[in-house]
C-alpha cells in the first residue's frame, strides 16, 4: 500500500463503496467501536469530572484544599485519622482533607500536562514540517538542535530553570506552574519534531507531493494541505502517548520538591509528604489517595492512546 495511504489511516475506508459523510465521521465511528478507546475515555471522564467537582466537594465537606484541621483530623499524638464520614479519605500529616486535596491535585496535573503537551505538539510539528520539507542546511541544524535538547537531563535542568525564576530578592517572577508548563514543553517538543520530520521526509518524495508541484502549488500549500492532513492522525496519536508521560513528569518534579510547591496540592507533593513522614504506614490513604488517582489517570490515557493507535496508526509509525 502506498506510503501516504499507510500514514493517513485509510483503513477506516475499508470496504465502503458508498458516499461517506466525512473522513472525520468514519474515524469517530471506528474509535467508538474500539474497546481500548472506550475504556480509556471512561476512565479519563471519571478523572475529569472529579477534577471539575473539586470545589463542590470542598464546599460540601467544608474543607478547603489547604486548610488544616488539626483538632478534628489529628489524634492526640498528632497522627492523622483514617477514613471517616467527615474525612472520606482521611487526613494527612497536617490535618488536611486527603479527598479534597486529591481532587484538586487532578486539576493541577491536567492543567499543567495538557497545555504543555499541546504546546509541544504545535511547536514540534511546525519545526519538524519545515525542517523535513526544506531539507539541506536547515534540516541539519534542526536535527542537531534536537540532539542537543535531548541530551539535557530533565530534572536537574528543570531545577536550574526554576531557579532562574527567582528575582534578586528571592521572590518568584512568574507563577511556578507556568514555568513547569514551559519546562515540560521544552522537554517534549523534540519528540514531536523528530516524529514529524521523519514522516515528512517519507512524504516529500511521494508522487502526492510531486503531483501537487506539477500543478504549480506553492510550498506552503503543499505543506499545509497535502502533507499535514495526512500526518495529522499519527501526530495526534503521539499526543495521546506523550500526555501520560508528561503527567508523570510533573508529578516527579513535585515529588522531588522541584515543581509545584507546598501547600498547593499536587499528587507528587502529597506522595512525597506521605513517604517522608512514613505516616502512610498508619494512614494508608494518605499515600493511596493521590497514588491511585495518579495511576488511574496515567493508565486511562495509556489505554486511550492504545485505542487511538489501533484506529489511526495501526502500522505504529508513532513508535
Amino acid at each position: 500500500m502506498a506510503e501516504v495511504h499507510a500514514l493517513a489511516g485509510t483503513e477506516v475506508f475499508e470496504g465502503r463503496r458508498d458516499v461517506v459523510r466525512s473522513y472525520g465521521s468514519l474515524v469517530i465511528g471506528a474509535l467508538l467501536r474500539e474497546k481500548s478507546f472506550r475504556a480509556g475515555v471512561i476512565i479519563i471522564a471519571f478523572v475529569a469530572v472529579g477534577a471539575m467537582l473539586a470545589p463542590a466537594v470542598a464546599w460540601l465537606l467544608g474543607h478547603g484544599p489547604t486548610e488544616q484541621f488539626r483538632d478534628t483530623a489529628l489524634t492526640e499524638m498528632g497522627l492523622p485519622t483514617g477514613p471517616t464520614l467527615e474525612f472520606p479519605l482521611g487526613a494527612d500529616g497536617n490535618g488536611r482533607d486527603v479527598l479534597v486535596r486529591t481532587l484538586y491535585g487532578a486539576r493541577v496535573s491536567l492543567a499543567i500536562a495538557i497545555p504543555a503537551t499541546t504546546l509541544a505538539m504545535i511547536i514540534g510539528t511546525a519545526i519538524g514540517l519545515v525542517s523535513g520539507f526544506l531539507g539541506g542546511r536547515i534540516d541539519r541544524i534542526v536535527s542537531q538542535g534536537i540532539d542537543i535538547a535531548l541530551s539535557f537531563p530533565f530534572i536537574v535542568t528543570a531545577l536550574s530553570l526554576l531557579t532562574l525564576n527567582r528575582g534578586a530578592d528571592g521572590k518568584v517572577l512568574v507563577a511556578p506552574s507556568l514555568v513547569v508548563v514551559l519546562i515540560i514543553t521544552l522537554f517534549s517538543w523534540t519528540y514531536f519534531a523528530r516524529l514529524t520530520r521523519g514522516l515528512v521526509l517519507v512524504l516529500r518524495r511521494s508522487p502526492l507531493v510531486e503531483a501537487a508541484q506539477t500543478i504549480g502549488a506553492s510550498k506552503a500549500h503543499i505543506i499545509l494541505r497535502e502533507i499535514l492532513p495526512n500526518i495529522a492522525p499519527v501526530i495526534l496519536v503521539y499526543w495521546a502517548v506523550q500526555l501520560p508521560t508528561n503527567i508523570v513528569a510533573e508529578a516527579t518534579l513535585s515529588f522531588l520538591g522541584v515543581g509545584v510547591q507546598a501547600p498547593e496540592p499536587s499528587w507528587g507533593t502529597m506522595i512525597a509528604e506521605a513517604q517522608r513522614s512514613s505516616l502512610y504506614q498508619v494512614q494508608p490513604w494518605f499515600l493511596l489517595g493521590p497514588g491511585i488517582a495518579l495511576f488511574l489517570t496515567v493508565a486511562g490515557f495509556n489505554t486511550l492512546s492504545a485505542g487511538l493507535r489501533n484506529v489511526l496508526d495501526p502500522r505504529r509509525h508513532s513508535g
Binding site: 502506498a2 495511504h5 511521494s206 495526512n230
Partner: peptide, 9 residues
Amino acid sequence: DPYASLNPR
C-alpha cells in the same frame, strides 16, 4: 501508482 498520487484525505 495512482494510489500514491491522490491525496487520501
